[in-house]
């Protein structure tokens, strides 16, 4: 008899079988280096919801459609583990549903105006 109950390691751990079923066993998206945590994802305009997308992909797509946001935000909001989110976002990028922009690296900050803004912002918190 096959036991279809997901296996849990402990309360903190997710159901493993389901985790890898979502990504068809992939831990990394194909042909891509892992999406940066700070990369911004934006939903492509005018892409209709595709009922053929898995529920998890639809969830991610809806989150992206609200506003452009980072991979971290999307992972946190979806409650899915980061690695799974990356693989699924990679698929959505490949299918043209969303686009990704590289994050600004601190060394590329245009000047220290941004840091000044951050300081002022923190002081005003």
């Amino acid at each position: 008899m096959t036991d279809s109950t997901p296996q849990w390691y402990d309360d903190e751990a997710g159901p493993l079988v389901r985790l890898y079923a979502m990504t068809a066993g992939r831990a990394r998206s194909v042909g891509e280096t892992a999406l940066d945590l700070m990369a911004t994802i934006e939903a492509s305009p005018m892409v209709p919801d595709n009922p053929m997308l898995s529920p998890e992909k639809l969830t991610l797509l809806r989150i992206c459609q609200r506003q452009p946001q980072t991979v971290t935000d999307i992972a946190s909001e979806s409650n899915l583990p980061l690695g799974v989110v990356r693989v699924l976002l990679g698929d959505l990028i490949g299918a043209g549903y969303i686009t990704v922009s590289r994050p600004i690296q601190p060394t590329q900050l245009p000047d220290s105006h941004i840091l000044k803004e951050v300081l002022d912002g923190l002081r005003a918190l």
Binding site: Q7, Y9, D10, E12, A13, G14, L16, V17, L19, Y20, G25, A27, T72, D73, S76, P81, G83, E117, V118, G121, L122, L125
Partner: peptide
């Protein structure tokens, strides 16, 4: 962990906080 051979991972929760400037 039958059925998930090789893929032995568990999830870990990190603290993540955002400050909007």
């Amino acid at each position: 962990i039958n059925g998930v051979e090789q893929k032995t991972t568990t999830t870990v929760a990190m603290d993540f906080g955002r400050i909007t400037i």
